[in-house]
Design a binder for these strands. Structure first.
Lengths: 194, 194
DNA sequence: GATATGCATTAACTTTTGTTAATTAGTCAG
DNA sequence: CTGACTAATTAACAAAAGTTAATGCATATC
């Protein structure tokens, strides 16, 4: 499969201590799947315990509050997604995961990965690393909601994910930023006038 | 020391798998210290790698952006504080930790705790548990900044920490919520009128 | 006691955001 | 091609938040 080569390369550059056998070991428990735009990979209330790795495409994580759709996160190529809070607390998930642009995704059962880690310390290191990266990112996001204006948050998001406005409706970007779609539209208008 | 009794009780109720020897083991590497209001336990840029446990009092975590003080977190009795992102990424901290009301604090060197965990699996479990709790809390906070109005965030904070307005200046609560002190004052005024 | 300092509130005004609705453009199904 | 649907923008107005400054209050300092 031609998708595995770039994945191997990526993993080995990010985690140089991994051997080819380590990667094969993980792969043997993972599934590569393709999903069309709009597909739901996980729904609120489900107890399936999965981690995903985006090989191609864009995935959106969101939740509903009072019937309103709030975007929690975007995940693109070579990023890991999963509702870690529900995996760690072992409770049903509160967030949906859906495919925003057609995706090729590597899916792995979190508990099977957990089992692998008892045999292989390097895979355990990766599991811990995923948790740590998520914690660090969450902390940074809290800091940003506290100290940045919506416009600044938008510019920051654009810098990190320049292609995003072409990949998802702006209304989903708006809720990610904590504002309404109308307000984001005005922010974009203001920015243009420079 | 009479502060250790309630601490032991708390730890054993939260982590029932701990033996008295486990707790003593951690204690032997920890220091109980008292600090007056206003004391700084950690400063931006420092590389000291510490975790703290509040035995009594209230601690505030904050950061500076463009010279402005933004409150990142409050920690009260029986809560753990520490700049986990800098501990995990092994970089100097970006956040200050200061004493808001006179405190009795148990301080432990994170790396010494780390060393303990190689000899004692139950202590490792606690270390991991601390990280997981922090991740879960951070995720919930991101969700709240996205989907709740400042007034709702204030009411939620009050429900969680009812004593807070008597313990810290309101301006610090305001920045925690992501608004100005003037705005929080108006929110409080609005709430009174019920 | 007089003065200085810091904090919360209030006021006055500006800016931004929320809300609702209308408009426009694009996509899809028949 | 037409009608239905969705998304983005724009308009108009209301509500909320930011900004600056003034006031009152408590506390600390001399």
């Amino acid at each position: 499969m031609e998708f595995i080569r770039p994945l191997r390369d990526f993993l080995k550059s990010k985690y140089p201590f991994l051997s080819d056998e380590d990667i094969s070991m993980v792969m043997s428990f993972a599934e590569i799947r393709e999903y069309p735009q709009g597909e739901q990979l996980l729904r609120e209330g489900e107890t399936r315990r999965i981690l995903g790795f985006v090989l191609e495409g864009l995935v959106r994580v969101y939740f509903l509050r009072d019937g309103v759709d709030y975007t929690f996160d975007f995940r693109e190529q070579f990023e890991i997604f999963g509702n870690l809070d529900s995996l760690l607390a072992n409770v049903p998930t509160t967030r949906f995961i859906e495919v925003s642009t057609p995706c090729r995704v590597l899916m792995i059962d979190y508990d099977e990965l957990q089992t692998l880690t008892t045999y292989n310390d390097r895979i355990e290191t990766i599991r811990v690393h995923i948790l740590q990266e998520n914690l660090i990112q969450s902390i940074q996001r809290v800091e940003q909601y506290i100290s940045l204006k919506p416009e600044e948050r938008y510019l920051k998001l654009l810098a990190e994910r320049p292609a995003l406005p072409n990949q998802v409706p702006l209304k989903h970007i708006a809720t990610y930023l904590g504002v309404t779609a109308v307000s984001l539209s005005r922010i974009r208008n203001r920015i243009k006038s420079d």
